[in-house]
Computed example of a mutant assay.
Amino acid sequence: MKKVKIGIVGLGRLGRQHAENLAFRIRNCELHAICSVVKEEVDELQREWGIPHGYTNYNDMLENKELDAIFIASPSGFHCEQIEKALEKGFHVFTEKPLGLHLNEVVRVKEAVEKHPDQVFMVGFMRRYDKSYQYAKQKMEQGVIGEPVLIRCYGFDPAKAIDGFMNFAKNNYSGGLFLDMSIHDLDLARWYLQSEADSVWAIGGAYAYPEIAELNDAETGAALVKFKNNTMGIFVAGRNCAHGYHIETEIVGTKGTLRIGTVPEKNMVTVFGDQGAVKECSEGFIERFEQAYLSEVEEFIQCILENRQPHVTVDDGVQSTILGYACKESFETGQLIKVQSHPANEAVYK
């Protein structure tokens, strides 16, 4: 079977993990080119992994006619332009979330994708490919909890990662707590509740790290969302979790409840010692969702080989960004935000 030749842009922490998956763990795939503005990263991986082509300029990589697809793992502020350019050059495209940091950007991406219906386009909402989240979805479809009425999502980054976040945020790469962190939960809510948002109220503050307030952002924040089908969402996100990386989701239905990740266990081991019985916690998103990051890219490759589109669409990226931006607006203004969509799916809020 033909191998899909991929070029990846962005070799940071997540980008490097994706690159390693593409190079060594995914069938019918070949990591054929890598691109980073940090030349040392490119040189290192070319030397150690035997990657044929290395670039420090994204436009140069797009001129490589041997490539079939482009994988975008660069900082969020570059996604929109890089997606548009890759599609115009005829490539299939996988992009990490979000599509962009501004509403006009995500609308541009949607238009660009719709101009190229024969090219596979996929957004990296990896939690949809996590086995636990998929199992919960199956249970919901089987009617185990009746009709879902409320989703509660917690997303906390480990406190020890705060320095890395501050460097990221100071370069305007974040987009804020709700767009950067909560967007995965917002996408899950849309997926589980099968509805778009109607209105949002968000609050938050910088408690242990007041310097985050100087970035007009929250260290810890919460959003309450009413969806158009009258279901509810409660979203809490933070960057100061003492015990590690904690992602928890609860779906409350008319006949029962599902919980995912209530205890963020590192593995199945319990350590018995002078501190009692200890279950260690996951320390980061790559560790917790290692399988999901692999599975989503396997799906992308299969879509290319089978000439079909993935279940995660550009509209999922657009609508989740719209909701994340509405949360950001509510937090910044202190106002209840009414989320609306125009007929053309170009969302606005007021």
Rank of each mutant, 00 (worst) to 15 (best):
A222M: 04
V312L: 09
Q275T: 15
V109Q: 08
Y173L: 10
A237M: 02
Y349H: 09
H92D: 06
N64W: 05
N104A: 13
G244S: 03
E290V: 07
V200G: 04
G334K: 09
I26D: 01
Y58M: 11
E20S: 09
F168N: 11
E30P: 00
G10L: 05
V93L: 03
G256L: 09
V236L: 13
P343L: 02
D60K: 13
Q138L: 15
T56D: 01
F125V: 02
E44T: 07
T333A: 08
E290R: 14
D316C: 04
H92C: 04
A136W: 10
Y245I: 12
S76W: 01
A222C: 03
G12W: 10
L188E: 09
V252N: 06
I251R: 10
C153P: 00
A202F: 02
E96Y: 08
G205F: 04
G205K: 10
P148T: 10
V38H: 15
E48R: 11
M61W: 03
S320N: 07
I247D: 11
R108D: 10
I260T: 14
M122R: 01
D185Q: 01
Y133A: 10
M140L: 15
R239E: 06
L103R: 07
Q309V: 04
Y129K: 14
Q82E: 13
R239T: 10
Y55E: 06
F165N: 06
P343I: 05
Y55G: 08
A86C: 05
S182R: 02
E329C: 00
T333P: 04
L294G: 03
T333M: 04
A347T: 02
E88W: 01
V9F: 05
D217N: 06
V107H: 12
P98S: 06
Q138R: 13
H18T: 13
N240F: 13
T321Q: 06
A161N: 15
D217E: 06
S199A: 10
D118A: 13
R128C: 11
Q309H: 09
Q194P: 02
K350L: 15
T262C: 15
I6C: 11
P75H: 03
V4Y: 01
Y133H: 15
V278Y: 12
